[in-house]
C-alpha cells in the first residue's frame, strides 16, 4: 500500500474547516486534543460562529429545544433537550414532563442549594438561568452553555431586585 498518510498532510485548512463544521460539539471538544492547530481552529471565534449558523440550518440534525422539567424519579429539576422530530416525551404525568431514560440529560454543572433553576432567556445557544431565591441575597444569575457543559455565575446586579428575579431578568444579544 502506498503511503496514503502523506496525502492527508496536504488537505487545505479550508477543507478541514468544512469537515469540522459538520461535527457535533461533543466531537469538536474532544478533537481540540488532536493538535495545537486544531485546538486554535476549533476554539476561534469565526469557527464557532460558522458552526453555530450551520447547526441551526442543518436539516439532517435539527437543533434541540431545551425544556426545564421536574423529574419525579430523581426528585430534581432537570433540563432535557428535545429534538423537533419528537418534541415531547411520550408520557405526561401530573402536569410534569417525565423523562424517558433514552433521552440525553443535560445537567447544569453548577448546583444551587435549592436546585430550582429557571430559564430566564437564551441567545445563540447560551442560557441565562436564575435560581429561585429564598431571600434577596440568594439571587444568582448563571450563564450556561449546555453544548460544552460550562456555566459561570454572573455578578449580582447592583440595581434593586425583587424576590422574583426570574420575572425581571432576560437575555438578549446586541451585536455592536
Amino acid at each position: 500500500m502506498p503511503e496514503k498518510e502523506t496525502m492527508s498532510d496536504h488537505i487545505p485548512q479550508e477543507v478541514i474547516v468544512k469537515i469540522l463544521s459538520q461535527l457535533p460539539v461533543k466531537s469538536l471538544i474532544r478533537f481540540r486534543c488532536v493538535s495545537r492547530t486544531w485546538f486554535s481552529l476549533i476554539s476561534c471565534h469565526d469557527f464557532i460562529t460558522l458552526h453555530h449558523s450551520r447547526a441551526l440550518s442543518n436539516t439532517r440534525n435539527p437543533p434541540y429545544l431545551l425544556f426545564r422539567h421536574y423529574d419525579q424519579k430523581i426528585g430534581k429539576y432537570c433540563f432535557t433537550p428535545l429534538s423537533s422530530d419528537n418534541p415531547f416525551p411520550p408520557t405526561l404525568k401530573e402536569g410534569y414532563f417525565t423523562c424517558p431514560s433514552d433521552f440525553i440529560e443535560t445537567h447544569c454543572p453548577h448546583k444551587s442549594f435549592i436546585k430550582r433553576f429557571f430559564i430566564a432567556g437564551s441567545s445563540n445557544g447560551v442560557c441565562l438561568l436564575n435560581d429561585s431565591p429564598v431571600t434577596e441575597d440568594d439571587i444568582a444569575p448563571l450563564l450556561w452553555n449546555p453544548s460544552i457543559h460550562k456555566a459561570i455565575f454572573l455578578p449580582i446586579p447592583e440595581f434593586p431586585c425583587s424576590y422574583m428575579p426570574m420575572q425581571y431578568y432576560g437575555l438578549a444579544m446586541i451585536p455592536l
Binding site: S8, I11, V34, S35, T37
Partner: peptide, 13 residues
Amino acid sequence: VEYVRKFFGLESD
C-alpha cells in the same frame, strides 16, 4: 483523538 490523528496524518504538538 488517536484515530483522527492517524486519519489526517497529524501528530500531537
